[in-house]
Amino acid sequence: MHNNPNELERKKMLDEARHIAVVGLSDKPERTSYMIAEALQKAGYRIFPVNPKLTDFVLGEKPYASLTDIEEKIDIVNVFRRSETVFPVVEEAVKIGAKVVWMQQGVQHEEAATYGENHGLTVVMDRCIKVDHAILLKKGKQYQN
């Protein structure tokens, strides 16, 4: 059974990350994936839209059909896909040398998590990256003053 990294570990992941691939990002501003990607971008991360259906830039960034099409190093792969479609995403994350796969709230796949961890990934399941960012990094900054 998968256990998510603790708060301190998740805070460190978010602190150290610069590039976040958002798998399943929609180009529709009313969609959760768009709102979260936009918030991450405003927080200083460079986002990489990953969705084979996208052809135009999203949030000012070129979209990619798959993780393997991205030429830059990806720190976190943030997943907005149905749970049953996650395994190939985790396989691609391993292939590109990502550090973290972060499955959004409601997204869980035990087998994919085990595969990712066995291949060196840190896996977060069923948690919203935006919520964790708001709570963990803001709280951390308050203590640094």
Results as ranks from 00 to 15, higher is better:
45 Y>V: 12
47 I>T: 08
47 I>C: 11
48 F>Y: 15
48 F>V: 06
48 F>T: 00
49 P>F: 10
50 V>I: 07
50 V>K: 04
50 V>C: 00
50 V>R: 09
52 P>T: 10
53 K>I: 10
53 K>F: 11
54 L>E: 06
54 L>D: 07
54 L>C: 07
55 T>I: 13
56 D>M: 03
57 F>S: 14
57 F>H: 11
58 V>I: 12
59 L>C: 13
60 G>Y: 14
60 G>Q: 12
61 E>S: 14
61 E>A: 15
61 E>R: 15
61 E>I: 01
62 K>D: 12
62 K>A: 12
63 P>T: 04
63 P>F: 12
64 Y>R: 01
65 A>G: 14
66 S>R: 15
66 S>T: 15
67 L>S: 08
67 L>A: 08
67 L>C: 04
67 L>Q: 08
68 T>G: 00
69 D>M: 04
69 D>Q: 14
69 D>P: 07
70 I>K: 05
70 I>P: 02
71 E>W: 09
71 E>K: 15
72 E>A: 06
72 E>I: 04
72 E>M: 09
73 K>A: 08
73 K>D: 13
74 I>L: 13
74 I>K: 06
74 I>Y: 01
74 I>N: 04
75 D>A: 03
75 D>K: 01
75 D>Q: 03
77 V>H: 08
78 N>P: 00
81 R>A: 13
81 R>I: 09
82 R>F: 00
82 R>I: 11
82 R>Q: 09
83 S>E: 10
83 S>F: 05
86 V>A: 06
86 V>G: 03
86 V>E: 02
87 F>W: 10
87 F>T: 14
88 P>H: 05
88 P>M: 02
88 P>W: 02
89 V>P: 10
89 V>M: 02
89 V>Y: 06
90 V>P: 02
91 E>T: 01
91 E>M: 05
91 E>P: 05
91 E>F: 03
92 E>K: 09
92 E>Q: 15
93 A>Q: 01
93 A>R: 01
94 V>H: 11
95 K>Q: 14
95 K>W: 07
96 I>Y: 09
96 I>K: 04
97 G>F: 05
97 G>Y: 07
97 G>L: 01
98 A>Y: 14
100 V>C: 02
101 V>L: 08
101 V>N: 08
104 Q>K: 11
105 Q>L: 14
108 Q>L: 11
109 H>C: 12
109 H>T: 10
109 H>I: 06
109 H>R: 10
110 E>V: 01
112 A>N: 01
113 A>I: 04
115 Y>R: 08
115 Y>K: 00
116 G>I: 03
116 G>A: 04
116 G>F: 02
117 E>S: 09
117 E>H: 02
117 E>V: 06
118 N>M: 13
119 H>I: 06
119 H>S: 01
120 G>A: 00
120 G>M: 05
121 L>E: 06
122 T>H: 08
122 T>S: 13
122 T>D: 03
122 T>C: 03
123 V>G: 09
123 V>H: 06
123 V>Q: 06
